[in-house]
Computed example of a mutant assay.
Amino acid sequence: MREEDTVCVGSDGLQYCKACGEAKEAFFPKGDFMGMKKHSRQCACDRKAYEEEQKYFKDKEHRELVSRNTSICFDESRMEEWTFENADMSDAVMHKAKKYVDNWEKMKRNHIGCLFWGPVGTGKSYVAGCIANDLLKREVTVKMTNFNTIIDDIFPLADKTEYINALASYQLLIIDDLGVERNSEYALGIIFSVIDRRIRSGRPLIITTNLPLKEIKSETMLDKRRIYDRILEMCTPMYVGGTSKREAIASMKMEKAKTLLNANRGEEKCE
Rank of each mutant, 00 (worst) to 15 (best):
40 S>F: 14
164 I>E: 01
261 L>V: 12
33 F>S: 14
46 D>M: 03
226 R>N: 08
220 T>S: 15
175 I>G: 10
177 D>P: 02
130 C>Q: 02
138 R>I: 09
48 K>R: 15
70 T>P: 05
228 Y>D: 04
7 V>D: 06
24 K>W: 02
43 C>D: 07
242 G>H: 00
90 S>A: 00
15 Q>D: 13
249 I>C: 02
192 F>I: 06
213 L>D: 09
26 A>W: 13
254 M>G: 04
99 K>E: 13
215 E>Q: 11
134 D>K: 06
117 W>M: 12
19 A>K: 13
29 P>K: 12
144 M>I: 04
43 C>F: 10
143 K>A: 07
187 A>P: 11
23 A>E: 04
52 E>R: 10
95 H>F: 13
23 A>Q: 02
196 D>F: 03
3 E>M: 13
95 H>V: 12
89 M>F: 09
148 N>L: 07
116 F>K: 06
72 I>M: 06
127 V>R: 05
215 E>A: 13
5 D>I: 08
211 L>W: 05
51 E>T: 09
96 K>A: 11
116 F>P: 10
93 V>W: 00
184 S>W: 00
38 K>S: 14
170 Y>I: 12
163 Y>A: 13
72 I>P: 00
241 G>T: 03
65 L>F: 08
116 F>V: 01
23 A>S: 06
105 E>V: 11
194 V>C: 05
15 Q>K: 15
195 I>A: 05
270 C>L: 15
207 I>V: 01
249 I>E: 09
253 K>D: 14
74 F>R: 00
168 A>M: 06
148 N>Q: 01
37 K>L: 13
119 P>D: 10
105 E>Y: 05
85 E>N: 03
123 G>N: 08
248 A>W: 09
95 H>Q: 15
94 M>S: 11
49 A>T: 08
244 S>L: 02
123 G>S: 08
262 N>T: 13
32 D>T: 14
123 G>Y: 07
113 G>T: 07
11 S>Y: 11
195 I>S: 03
271 E>P: 14
206 I>F: 08
54 Q>Y: 12
247 E>P: 05
126 Y>V: 08
171 Q>S: 05
184 S>K: 03
255 E>W: 10
33 F>G: 11
49 A>D: 12
193 S>H: 05
268 E>Y: 15
138 R>W: 10
194 V>K: 07
260 L>G: 03
96 K>C: 12
246 R>M: 00
1 M>F: 02
1 M>N: 12
171 Q>M: 15
109 R>M: 09
8 C>H: 15
115 L>R: 04
135 L>C: 10
10 G>E: 03
115 L>Y: 12
106 K>W: 02
102 D>C: 02
89 M>R: 12
195 I>N: 08
247 E>L: 11
204 P>A: 01
252 M>H: 13
249 I>L: 11
103 N>C: 08
214 K>D: 09
233 E>P: 06
